[in-house]
Each structure stands twice: as structure tokens, then as C-alpha cells.
Design a binder for these strands. Structure first.
Length: 295
DNA sequence: CGGGACTCCTGCCAGC
DNA sequence: TGCTGGCAGGAGTCCC
């Protein structure tokens, strides 16, 4: 699920339920996710009021009035589900994650369940356990190892053709691999890199440094920056992409997967030229592209 | 510093 | 029907 648009969708879904509310109970599965749970994690959340939700790249942050900030990454399969306090647990989701509205016993892949002061319940579910939570003083957030070396936000002012020219100059690896490097630009994943390269008409196999030989912006870089921004904004507007499960906190699917031009479409006709979309492997991960439309 | 291989974990699907 | 291998939206570590 989670690249930048999916994390943004989840955060927007959680915001109206969490912002301004106090956490009265936090329960963790105790199972190790990508990292061990921080010392005293649940106890340090309980009693805290959520002041603000933020996103940085694929990370979500919850600022609490205790002075601490929760850092969360969804990994590959992490998702949040919300049950507003005034509402019954939805039937379908209840069967899947909880055993019933009264019991609300956690399912096997629920790792964190919050209860807020108005009885809203928020569950974090993650079968593969590649996600993680951390907790730190708010002023230390920027120094957290996961955040300290991230590149600019692709939807922020720092992501420009001039920046990309400097960032890619001299890189000998493929441009596709460079765009997945969170130190180059923070928040892109496999789907949106494939889609952006298709829109920009750039071959994923092209050498990254070859797009910016002089370290100055080029027409290709202009197209790339524009394509990345457009694909992300469209995906956010569609509520993200849902491949195997729901991305949104109310259980509804995102819709952007309907708009994939190349991702997951090996063998299907390219919407530009009709030739079959190809799949190759780069850095151990699938790349989908059209070798005719992308040069 | 760059980059490829490998790793963590479970679920799902195609193919036999 | 049932098993097996491959693959999946991420990212850290190790090694060259």
C-alpha cells in the first residue's frame, strides 16, 4: 500500500478522529515489527492529547501534548482502521479484524489499538510486520535516523529541475533506482516511479547522471519533475492506490490503481502506442514501462 | 560514495 | 483439491 499518496490518505483519514483528542488507552501486540517497540511505548501514549498529525515522506508523525512525537511507518502491509466512538463496528471489517462490536478483541495482525477519550478506536494492522513505531521528544524528530537523511518532499518547494540536476549528476545507476532512493527525493515508491517515468517519456534504464550531464536543468528533468508532481497529486485526489487491501481508514479502497498506465500491466497495450508494456527487474524490483514511448 | 544482493515477514495467486 | 514457487507498495545492512 504505502507510498506518499497512501500515507497522505491515511493521515487525512485519521486527522478528524485524532486531532485534539486524548488517548485514554494504548495496547500493543508486543510482537516485534521491523524494530522493537520503544521502551514503555503504550504508557507514554496514554493520557497524551494529539495536537497535530504530520507527514514526512512515507512517515506519519503524531505530535502529543506530552512533548513527545510518535513516528510511524507502514512498511509494506501496514494499515489503519478507525471505528468512530458513536458508530458500531462495520460488519465486514468487524469479522476480519475484530470478533464483534462488544468484544473488540484484536485480530492476529493487529499490533496497536488506541482508544481515544470519545471511545474512538484506532487499530494498526500489519501482517508482514515491516512497519514500525518510534517515540521521541518533538525537538529530536529531525535527528531521527529514519528522517535525518531524507531528500526533499516531491510536492514541496525543494523539488525542482535544478535540484534534481545536482542530485543526479554523476550517478551511474539507472534513473529508476535513483528515484527510489529516499535521499534523492523522499516519498516515491515503485508504483509512482514507474508511472512518473512513463508520463515523462523517460526510460527507466537510462543512466541517472545522463539526464543531468552538466548538473544544470534540462528539458527531460523539467518533464520528470512535472510528471512526479502530477502523478502524486492525482493519486492523493483519488485516495491513493489499493492493490490487495484497503488503504483508507474507513475501509474504502483508494481509486488510483484504475489510472495506472504501466504499473502491473505487463503485456497489455501501451496507452500511447499500443505496443505491449514490458516488465524488467532493476535492483531486485519490477519495473513496468514502454520501450517505445520511453527513451 | 555508489550500487547490487540479501534480509525481515505473511498472504496470495498461478501453475502443476 | 493441494502443494510449491514466485512475487508483493519498503528499507536497512553487508559487501565489493
Amino acid at each position: 500500500m504505502p507510498e506518499l499518496p497512501e500515507v497522505e490518505t491515511v493521515m487525512r483519514g485519521l486527522e478528524p478522529h485524532m486531532t485534539g483528542r486524548r488517548i485514554i488507552s494504548a495496547r500493543i501486540s508486543g510482537k516485534r515489527l521491523r524494530h522493537s517497540w520503544p521502551e514503555g511505548f503504550a504508557a507514554r501514549l496514554e493520557g497524551g492529547r494529539v495536537e497535530r498529525l504530520r507527514r514526512r515522506a512515507k512517515y506519519m508523525l503524531w505530535d502529543l501534548d506530552t512533548g513527545e512525537t510518535v513516528l510511524c511507518h507502514l512498511g509494506m502491509s501496514g494499515r489503519f482502521t478507525v471505528w468512530p466512538g458513536t458508530q458500531d463496528v462495520p460488519e465486514a471489517l468487524g469479522a476480519f479484524y475484530f470478533h464483534g462490536p462488544s468484544e473488540r478483541e484484536p485480530g492476529p495482525h493487529d499490533h496497536l489499538i488506541l482508544t481515544l477519550e470519545d471511545q474512538t478506536r484506532i487499530a494498526y494492522t500489519d501482517p508482514r510486520r515491516f512497519g514500525f513505531f518510534d517515540l521521541m521528544a518533538r525537538e529530536d524528530v529531525g535527528n531521527h535516523p529514519a528522517l535525518a537523511r531524507l531528500g526533499p518532499e516531491p510536492l514541496g518547494p525543494g523539488f525542482t529541475p535544478a535540484y534534481m540536476a545536482r542530485a543526479l549528476r554523476g550517478r551511474r545507476g539507472a534513473v529508476k533506482t535513483a528515484l527510489l532512493d529516499q535521499a534523492v527525493v523522499a516519498g516515491l515508491g515503485n508504483i509512482y516511479v514507474c508511472e512518473a517515468l512513463f508520463r515523462a517519456g523517460i526510460s527507466p534504464r537510462r543512466q541517472a547522471g545522463g539526464i543531468a550531464p552538466s548538473g544544470r536543468p534540462t528539458a527531460r528533468l523539467e518533464r520528470l519533475v512535472t510528471a512526479v508532481r502530477e502523478v502524486l497529486l492525482e493519486a492523493i485526489a483519488a485516495g491513493g492506490s489499493t492493490l490487495r487491501d484497503h488503504a483508507r481508514v474507513n475501509g474504502e479502497a483508494g481509486g488510483f490503481q484504475q489510472h495506472f498506465a504501466v504499473y502491473g500491466r505487463e503485456g497489455e497495450p501501451c496507452e500511447g502506442c499500443g505496443r505491449p508494456v514490458q516488465r524488467i527487474v532493476q535492483g531486485g524490483r519490477s519495473t513496468f514501462f514502454c520501450s517505445h514511448c520511453q527513451k
